[in-house]
Simulated scan of single mutants.
Amino acid sequence: MIWAGVLLATTPCQAPLEAIAPQLLQDLPAYANRSVALLPNQQSLGSVLTAGQLDLTPLSLPLGSPPPQGTQQLFFTTLERSFLGQHSNLSQGFHWLFVTPSDRGWQFVSLYSQWGPYPLADRPTTPPQESSGGRIGQAVQTWLRDCRANFLSAGSF
């Protein structure tokens, strides 16, 4: 939509990434926790407690590969709780999200993640892996779909 000679976003998802990223991270735990039921072969029950530490500055991937052409990168972390029998464990996820702008809004490209215990201290993390099909990747894709459809709650933006 054009108003007073300025192109306005017709959906929140057409706004700059800096404008929608905080809302994505705020909504991500709920989206991720709902997506668990939709993923096949989920072995452990758990939940995403929070997502944060947003960084829009392109970071080099631990894989050493350059980001895909024409994409923007968003780095964030998650704090997750998993249950094994009577015990619960906290783990931290480190996620490199790649999205690309389109005429309909932001589109998911890929997600790379690595996990480690919480608190991390000097303990190692897993090697980074492509995680677009995992719980966080599916949650981001669903949130972006809802954002493009202008289906997010009215107070979100």
Rank of each mutant, 00 (worst) to 15 (best):
P101W: 14
L7R: 01
A30V: 08
R104H: 13
E18Q: 12
T78P: 11
N150I: 01
F83Y: 02
N33V: 06
L59W: 14
L120G: 07
W115F: 11
G155D: 06
L39A: 07
L97I: 12
G93S: 04
R34E: 07
Q69Y: 02
A21D: 14
S60R: 10
P68G: 00
Y31F: 13
L79C: 12
T100I: 08
S110H: 12
L38G: 10
F157I: 01
D27F: 03
V99L: 15
L8K: 04
S44G: 07
A37F: 13
G64Q: 07
F98K: 03
S131G: 02
D103P: 06
L79T: 02
Q72I: 05
P58A: 01
P66N: 01
A51K: 14
Y112D: 13
A9F: 13
Q86C: 15
R123H: 13
T142P: 10
V109W: 09
D27P: 14
L39C: 13
N33E: 01
T50W: 03
F83N: 13
G64C: 11
W115R: 06
W96E: 00
S156A: 08
N33T: 07
S60C: 12
P62A: 12
D103K: 11
P66E: 01
S88A: 14
F151H: 11
E130Y: 06
S110F: 12
P22D: 00
V6K: 08
G5L: 09
V6N: 00
L120M: 14
Y31S: 08
L45P: 09
I2D: 10
S35R: 12
V36P: 05
S153H: 10
P58V: 11
A30N: 09
D55Q: 13
Q86F: 11
P67A: 00
N150Y: 03
L8G: 06
F108Q: 04
A30I: 04
T126P: 14
A21I: 11
F151N: 13
Q114I: 15
L49G: 03
T10V: 07
L25P: 15
G46W: 02
A121M: 12
D27S: 14
F98D: 00
V36W: 02
Q138G: 08
Q107N: 12
G134Q: 11
S47K: 09
F151Q: 08
C13F: 09
N41T: 05
T78Q: 11
S110P: 14
F151K: 11
G5W: 07
T126M: 10
P101R: 08
T126L: 10
A4L: 10
N41K: 09
G93T: 00
S91C: 04
Q107A: 09
S35V: 03
Y118G: 01
L84R: 05
V36E: 02
P29A: 01
D27A: 10
